[in-house]
């Protein structure tokens, strides 16, 4: 039991280090964007007719603390970010946390449902395709899962839109009907949300399914070759009992590890799907921040939140795996 606590401590330390590294990368990227907040604030004033000098910009920089050295600004940013405070967006002039957190929660919800959908499809079909002797079934499963990998999500979204505009005369965009857009949450709004959300969930889940299916298949095939399965066969265990009790049980535990990776993939596709389906979530906010306005504070906050979520999920899945599977825990501790 002592082992588990040691493992959790080591793993926690590693997660924090990764998070710090990422926050550093993100912050440096934000700094590289030409122009800073002081210039943006003042250029707005200039456009409303005031005369702006270099002294004004320097004064504004001092007021915002932008004249401090890079490392000091970074540490104050990262300290605030860990407390959930990302400052204000100097283009939209709102507090980033208030703007972002509800939208991010919604995106995360959609992504996690998509992930659950993906796994509930991938596990049974992966096992089927690993064990089937039916060549046509196997190659058609292979074809569909490769198609899921090969098709960019925006094409799937476009195809669904194309189809629905031609046949239903509705573009299926957005997350709510107009009348519910600003309404407070209620049962009706929730149902309306579900009626719209299935499409992004389906599109995001589809690509993840393809990948998870390949993983399940490879894992089951690998386990199937092992001696204990042969031994079980020799003892006369056959059919479903053999398959489910022996190779599958062992094959699925490494799958827990791929959850974080698959979530990464779904986050990856989120902004583009959001753009096509005109969803106002964190993904499209990121696009807005980057494409239309160069809003580095907002963009940095979104990328930081996305990555932090993935790191937290990775941390949790590693702990879960180490509890289920002592081999993983041992391997991890010996490595370090």
């Amino acid at each position: 039991m002592k082992n588990i606590y040691q493992f959790i401590a080591v793993r926690f330390g590693l997660s924090i280090i990764t998070l710090l590294l990422i926050s550093f990368i993100v912050f440096s990227l934000m700094e590289l964007v030409p122009g800073n907040c002081a210039e943006r604030y003042l250029s707005f004033k200039q456009s409303s007719g005031q005369n702006i000098t270099f002294q004004d910009i320097a004064a504004e920089e001092r007021r915002l603390g932008l004249d401090r050295p890079f490392l000091i600004r970074y540490s104050s940013w990262v300290l605030n970010a860990f407390q959930g405070d990302f400052g204000t967006s100097c283009i939209m002039r709102v507090d980033i946390s208030t703007l972002l957190i509800p939208k991010f929660g919604m995106s995360l919800g959609i992504c996690i449902v998509a992930l659950i959908l993906a796994y509930s499809l991938a596990i049974p079909f992966g096992i089927i395709s690993a064990t089937t002797k039916n060549k046509i079934l196997d190659s058609s499963l292979k074809f569909f899962s490769y198609l899921g990998l090969a098709l960019p999500n925006f094409l799937v979204a476009l195809a669904v839109m194309l189809f629905s505009t031609i046949y239903f005369g509705d573009t299926l965009t957005g997350l709510f009907s107009p009348e519910y857009q600003d309404a407070p949450w209620s049962m009706k709004k929730f149902l309306n949300f579900l009626a719209h959300a299935w499409l992004p969930i389906f599109i995001l889940g589809w690509a993840a399914t393809a990948l998870a299916l390949q993983t399940v298949k490879a894992l089951v095939i690998d386990e199937n070759k092992k001696l204990y399965v042969t031994a079980a066969k020799a003892r006369g265990v056959t059919g479903k009992r053999l398959l489910l009790n022996y190779p599958t049980r062992h094959a699925l535990s490494p799958l827990i590890n791929s959850i974080g990776f698959d979530l990464n993939r779904i986050f990856n596709d989120l902004p583009i799907v959001a753009l096509i389906l005109a969803i106002t979530d964190a993904g499209s906010l990121l696009l807005q921040a980057l494409v239309r306005s160069n809003d580095q504070q907002l963009a940095g906050a979104i990328i930081f939140l996305m990555t932090a979520t993935i790191i937290i999920i990775n941390f949790i899945t590693d702990i879960v795996l180490s509890i289920i599977d002592p081999r993983a825990r041992k391997g991890m501790l010996n490595q370090k």
């Binding site: 990764t18 990368i25 986050f267 990856n268 902004p271 583009i272 990121l286 990328i303 996305m306 993935i310």
Partner: peptide, 9 residues
């Protein structure tokens, strides 16, 4: 760990 497309963007 950073999702690549947001990073590309």
């Amino acid at each position: 760990t950073i999702p690549p497309i947001p990073l590309f963007m």
